[in-house]
Design a protein around this nucleic acid. Structure first.
Lengths: 247, 247
DNA sequence: TTTGTTCGGGTATATTATACGCTAAGCAAG
DNA sequence: CTTGCTTAGCGTATAATATACCCGAACAAA
């Protein structure tokens, strides 16, 4: 079996956002397609002289209007099943780009961003939709598998680094932070212990501002102190990691 | 800038082994090359109808004689700098395979295996060498960067799942296990606490056998109880993860 | 004023991390 | 055979942390 060279490389991005209640993902609608294959993840072939992360950032800027500094982007795995794109979908791609590729290997990325008014408006104006994770049935090609993988990565990474804050606005309440953890990890957390834990970490800065117009005791807004976090990380490498083993 | 299709995909594997003292990695020697570029990671272009993991397993079987079930293989990142292979190296590849590729994107894998007599003999008979991590100066192309990334992954993964046992023979002493952790993580660990921690995890099974011919009190051999591990994992998802955040 | 909500300070207890003392068991050197 | 060196493996003490849960405070809505 010969070495293969007439193949294409693409990137596909699972873009996550959090609206304060549920986790959402950005999907592109292809009007020409029937309901089953209509929705896909934002993605693109790579261009000449472009690395994969560059391609991913390009896709994300097109879809959201956000530039590199406003996005958290991570490479995850590569999807290389020789038949992952074939038949109609392969023809679609070849026609669209005027090429004759026989195989498309894709690299999955996941991205986190702060869902605000402007971002939402931009994406909808581009024909993209924010869909709650729970509501997603089926996606084009193997994009459902890519999304599942991304969710797994997000889950794991939220337990290992403070990426949660990439999904929250600059100022947030501890309740919102907790909701985010509960939504992503699918667990319930005691609010008092969560607060204690978060505050004792020393990474949260009280702003002095409070919620307004809420039907309960207003909560204080906090910001994430990235520098304090970095300082703290250096200090510790504990044996406790054995407790966190997963397969 | 047009979409690119005349490119190649390859896999490169950082294969780790542990001899009881130091961490080693498997390197291929290219006799025709001068000292600086002589050593490289085992790797290959992908073939038609082959996924990337399949390609990696093929490379590993060629290099070590070990089959899938005796290897621990994990995909890590993708190296896609447009110029990561160029000039002489690109010509070398084109000549070798009779192709005309303009760009080689590679997927880095890392593999763990149990270093024993047979494996060592096989690899050396194939012109490959096990080199201590500490002793590696420079590798061909960007393979040093790939190796560094692999080491990072190994470090992180050893703190999150019991992959350490993939590097040890079926029966091992707790001291050896500790040495492995110390070698990979670059830290010193108190032997009494390490033992306590490991045994209390319930994943180690005492075999009843003991070391022989050692110049100190002989240690007992243990095996890793994978089933006990799996059972334990399900039980817990603690909030402690916040302590383990890294960037 | 009452009700429903979340905030956020607190306590009490079990679990775990970490430091370190000490004896046992082997080999080697004198 | 004794002394020394090394690692095994048991133990204890203390600090740190997780976890469960109490309860008054603060707001809006009814």
């Amino acid at each position: 079996m010969p070495v293969q060279t007439n193949q294409s490389l693409s990137v596909d991005c699972a873009v996550f956002g959090f609206d304060g209640e549920v986790l959402k993902v950005l999907l592109i609608e292809r009007p020409a397609y029937n309901a089953l294959d209509r929705l896909k993840l934002p993605g693109s072939m790579i261009l000449e002289n472009e690395t994969l992360p560059e391609a991913a950032y390009r896709v994300l800027e097109e879809a959201t209007g956000l530039r590199k500094r406003d996005l958290y982007l991570k490479q995850m795995e590569i999807f290389s099943d020789p038949d992952r794109v074939s038949g109609d979908e392969l023809e679609w791609i070849n026609r669209k780009h005027g090429i004759r590729t026989v195989r498309v290997v894709t690299v999955g990325f996941y991205a986190l961003l702060k869902l605000d008014r402007r971002t939402t408006d931009y994406t909808t104006s581009k024909g993209a939709r924010w869909v709650a994770i729970e509501a997603i049935q089926r996606l084009a090609m193997d994009h459902k598998a890519i999304l599942s993988a991304a969710l797994g990565y997000l889950c794991r990474e939220m337990q290992q680094s403070p990426v949660a804050f990439e999904l929250l606005p600059r100022k947030f309440t501890i309740r919102t932070l907790q909701r985010l953890f509960e939504a992503v990890l699918g667990i319930e957390i005691d609010n008092r212990n969560f607060r204690k834990k978060m505050l004792s970490s020393g990474f949260l800065l009280a702003t002095g501002e409070k919620e307004e117009g809420v039907a309960h005791k207003p909560a204080e807004y906090y910001t994430f102190d990235r520098n304090a976090y970095r300082r703290a990380v250096k200090a510790k490498l504990r044996m406790g990691f054995i407790d966190n083993w997963r397969y």
